[in-house]
């Protein structure tokens, strides 16, 4: 029982410290972006840096996995507050609700169909290419 509790406590501490690290990195990257007046926002810089650190094996994936899983899993919670400010724009949404909904629905249908159609074709092409490359590599190996 106590062993289980200690394990749980340890898990929570691990999660919190990883989230803390992500926050620290976000803050540092934001400072960097502002200080050098970079056209790239801190969050995108952060993605690049962390990818680089993981790629170079300087940061093992398992030391950030827990925090990353939580942060991306609860994304909805973090943008609830801006959504609530719809109250401020109530009349705007009411006045334009029909054309706005049409825009969103037709637009989404365009993106879904267009992207799906294009990717379906490219996927078939690239799968063929991958098979060809694999068999070519095999042939070279056999020769």
């Amino acid at each position: 029982m106590t062993a289980e509790r200690i394990k749980k406590c340890y898990g929570v501490l691990q999660l919190l410290s990883q989230i803390g690290l992500f926050c620290l990195l976000a803050w540092a990257m934001d400072q960097l972006s502002v200080y050098f007046a970079l056209p790239i926002p801190g969050s995108v810089l952060g993605i690049a840096i962390l990818l680089l650190l993981m790629g170079l094996k300087l940061v093992p994936e398992k030391s950030v996995k827990l925090g990353a899983g939580w942060l991306t899993g609860e994304l909805l919670l973090f943008f609830i507050p801006p959504v609530i400010s719809i109250i401020k724009y109530e009349s705007l949404f009411e006045q334009y609700s029909a054309p706005l909904m049409l825009t969103l629905v037709i637009g989404s249908v365009c993106v879904l169909l267009g992207t799906g159609f294009v990717v379906d074709r490219v996927f078939r092409f690239e799968t063929k290419m991958n098979i060809k490359r694999l068999s070519a590599a095999k042939a070279i190996g056999e020769a």
Partner: peptide
């Protein structure tokens, strides 16, 4: 809560790496 959007964005690098 909104301030956590930036760290959450950086966390997207983990699924890319995986």
């Amino acid at each position: 809560l909104v301030a956590l959007l930036a760290p959450a964005t950086i966390a997207f690098s983990v699924p890319i790496y995986r």
